[in-house]
């Protein structure tokens, strides 16, 4: 590791120093290609974020790919219903590693205002791992841009070797996530127990 003072002195002389990790992560985080995946109202704010006023293109994420095989960021924008949940997990499985998920809007985080619905999945993190959650109903396009920047910082901190390295470099990490099936009354299983546990109730009255 190069000392920061030395690094700055060198950069003033026109010599750029970096580590392989930084360079690798820098390339990945500044060219995230989102999957064009809008479910509901948040999709309109996502489209507004890609339009001229808010301009997601300056973050490198302009290219919304329709096909999951070519995307590496899935922005789950909108309410996830139980009818749609197996398709979302299937799409997530089809994305190649490294892949990231942003849960945009309260509906994707926990079911949102529709939490009491019989057809509403109470949060997409019941079946797929989520990296950044954006609250809001709908979150403003600026909030989506902040989430993108948070994700970029997270990618920038990812390690390539050693304990806790990024999932796509870890041979033991799961490659595919199980797809729920339609049951007679609910999805089966109602959640992926390896991924999501109901949170503790802190009030006990």
């Amino acid at each position: 590791m190069i000392e920061e003072g030395l690094r700055q002195e060198l950069s003033r002389q026109g010599v750029v120093t970096t580590t392989l990790e930084e360079l690798y992560n820098w390339g990945r985080k500044n060219s995230l290609w989102p999957l064009q995946f809008g479910l509901a109202c948040c999709a309109i704010e996502m489209i507004a974020a890609s339009m001229a006023r808010f301009d997601i293109a300056r973050f490198g994420a302009e290219v919304f790919r329709p096909s999951p095989r070519q995307a590496d960021l899935m922005i789950v924008a909108g309410t996830v219903t139980k009818k749609m949940a197996p398709q979302i997990v299937r799409l997530y499985n089809q994305m190649p590693e490294p892949k990231y998920v942003i849960a945009m809007g309260v509906c994707a985080i926990s079911g949102g205002p529709f939490k009491e619905g019989y057809n509403v999945l109470k949060g997409i993190d019941r079946y797929i791992p989520v990296d950044v959650h954006i609250p809001g109903c709908p979150p403003r396009p600026e909030a989506l841009l902040q989430a993108l920047m948070t994700l970029q910082e997270k990618i920038g901190r990812q390690r390539l070797t050693g304990e806790g390295r990024a999932r796509h470099l870890d041979a033991d990490a799961p490659g595919e996530w199980p797809i729920p099936e339609f049951g007679k009354h609910d999805l089966e299983p109602p959640r992926n127990p390896a991924l999501w546990q109901p949170p503790a109730m802190t009030r006990s009255e």
Binding site: L39, T79, T81, E116, V120
Partner: peptide, 11 residues
């Protein structure tokens, strides 16, 4: 359709 059936009427 039905992929966005959010049970508005029941709620």
């Amino acid at each position: 359709f039905g992929y966005l059936h959010r049970n508005h009427e029941k709620i």
